[in-house]
């Protein structure tokens, strides 16, 4: 009890906003899990319609939802630790292309369940960038979680839902992010979302139906790596991405 009060008293307004956003976001996977479990128990009890063939599918869905909820909490805790330490992460040379590919593999299960086709677009070779390996992975995972949900919620029922994890080079550095058919997303929406998250149920209504906590956890992690999320375009798609500086350190090796 005393420890709880201590945490509450010490929490910064930013931390509290992130916590509110995460709490709102966690309602979604927990509700999905609760209702799916209830459906299966109803099925056994009432036996009106048999979904026994779906048991494996539903259990896989529950597992994926639980896994993503836990990863969201993990990313939040990592973000919290960073905020406690003046919001900075140790930077090191990291292969952004490899991290992006790993992230795509981990998001694959969730994307498939939401009917979203994930694509990795890493054209060419990229030097390592200055980032934090654990932080970059957690940030991309959180960003992906938020955008998969957004992509599924915004598409017309019969539309093919695609989401690209992409890395490309610009005059300002190496840009890594996720892009899709988010035509209505404008830079002003993101700036407004940064003011609204944790205070409004929908921080970025032009993009997503829920609190989009994953996006703001990702932003906190990117900020701790001396960069930030921006609205960007790649291959005629719109999305959210961050710019990293190539590592000069490894080029000397």
């Amino acid at each position: 009890m005393i420890e709880g009060l201590q945490v509450q008293r010490d929490a910064s307004p930013e931390t509290m906003r992130l916590l509110c956003s995460v709490a709102e976001q966690l309602k979604v996977p927990l509700t999905v899990i609760a209702r799916q479990a209830e459906l299966m128990s109803m099925d056994r009890r009432v036996g009106v319609v048999s979904y026994q063939g779906d048991v494996g599918k539903v259990m896989a869905s529950i597992s994926t939802q639980t896994d993503m909820a836990l990863r969201l909490v993990d990313s939040y805790l990592l973000g919290l630790q960073l905020l406690d330490k003046q919001g900075a992460l140790a930077l090191e040379p990291v292969s952004v292309a490899a991290t992006l590919t790993d992230t795509a593999h981990e998001l694959h299960g969730l994307a498939r369940q939401y009917g979203v086709a994930l694509e990795v677009q890493v054209a060419g070779k990229y030097a390592p960038v200055m980032a934090n390996a654990r932080g970059l992975h957690a940030a991309l995972l959180s960003l992906g979680y938020g955008l998969i949900e957004a992509r599924a919620a915004s598409a017309a029922n019969d539309a093919v839902r695609r989401l690209s994890l992409a890395v490309h080079r610009t005059p300002y550095g190496i840009v890594a992010g996720l892009y899709g058919e988010f035509g209505a997303l404008a830079p002003a929406d993101w700036r407004r979302a940064l003011q609204w998250y944790g205070r409004a149920p929908q921080a970025i209504p032009s993009l997503a139906a829920g609190s989009s906590a994953g996006l703001f956890i990702a932003d906190a992690l990117f900020s701790a790596m001396a960069t930030a999320i921006r609205v960007g375009r790649f291959n005629k798609q719109t999305g959210l991405a961050a710019t990293f500086q190539p590592s000069r350190q490894l080029q000397l090796v």
């Binding site: 999905v32 209702r35 939802q65 369940q113 939401y114 599924a152 919620a153 017309a156």
Partner: peptide, 23 residues
């Protein structure tokens, strides 16, 4: 949420209703 929608639709169908879903 398409996952949740599938669950609701199955429950409603089991009660004999015809369902249509929009996101």
């Amino acid at each position: 949420d398409v996952m949740l929608a599938q669950t609701y639709c199955k429950a409603l169908q089991s009660a004999g209703h015809e369902t249509h879903h929009a996101t």
